[in-house]
């Protein structure tokens, strides 16, 4: 380090080399980025225990979402999917981009829970039903000691409902992940449009 500092101080182009080194280093880090899009966790986790079924995905109960992409040009932010908005506008949905050919959304619960149902508000709830996703895969996941375990996997094919409710019966679940199959670009359902996701269950412990 001392030699580097001396070089910079004495060499007529020392500061230029330092600047270039910083820019190149920054550029390498920039090019190596593979960001995962996630929302922040805003709220406290629901108390233990709580009677009855609650929506554990809600941002008001400490839920957060991770997504593969979201439509940044139209700002269809993933947070809309867990905002518990009763009558959302067309803006207030999570939507992916066409380039994302394997879109997914993962709800992370604030507390470990027994998940009974997953309820979705798909495109048809507010828009043309032809945009409603028909094929997707719901997974209940549990994280233990740094590893993520699959608790249950439920494949859905040929869905025609705008707001389907899927019984799951996943025990001790930390995350619920839904992976979608999208149509080729330019066709309806080439992007995911999700107005709301609810993960209904009972809290059993800490994550």
């Amino acid at each position: 380090m001392r030699r580097i500092v001396e070089f910079i101080a004495r060499h007529p182009w020392g500061w230029t080399w330092l600047y270039l080194a910083l820019v190149v280093g920054g550029l390498l880090q920039f090019l190596g980025r593979r960001p995962t899009i996630q929302t922040e966790t805003y709220a406290v986790a629901p108390p233990l225990p709580e009677d009855g079924e609650i929506n554990l995905a809600s941002l008001y109960r400490g839920g957060s979402v991770w997504v593969s992409s979201f439509d940044t040009h139209h700002l269809h932010h993933p947070l809309y999917a867990i905002d518990e908005r009763a009558n959302p506008t067309l803006l207030e949905k999570w939507a992916t981009v066409q380039a994302d050919r394997e879109p997914w959304i993962e709800v992370r619960l604030a507390r470990r829970a027994d998940v009974h149902r997953v309820v979705l508000a798909l495109a048809g709830a507010r828009e043309d039903g032809v945009l409603t996703m028909i094929d997707y895969d719901i997974q209940c996941l549990r994280e233990e000691q740094g590893e993520v375990w699959l608790v249950r996997d439920l494949a859905i094919h040929g869905n025609r409902e705008s707001s389907p409710s899927h019984p799951l019966e996943c025990s001790a679940t930390d995350r619920v992940r839904i992976g979608f199959w999208v149509a080729p670009e330019g066709q309806p359902r080439d992007v995911v449009r999700l107005y709301e996701i609810q993960v209904l269950g009972e809290v059993v412990g800490d994550v």
Binding site: T39, E40, L75, L79, Y80, D83, R85, T89, L91, E92
Partner: peptide
């Protein structure tokens, strides 16, 4: 500097607690 949703202020969004 954060992943906060933002939009132009319009009154059909004002009621969204987000």
């Amino acid at each position: 500097g954060r992943n906060l949703p933002f939009w132009r202020l319009q009154f059909d969004l004002v009621d969204n607690p987000v």
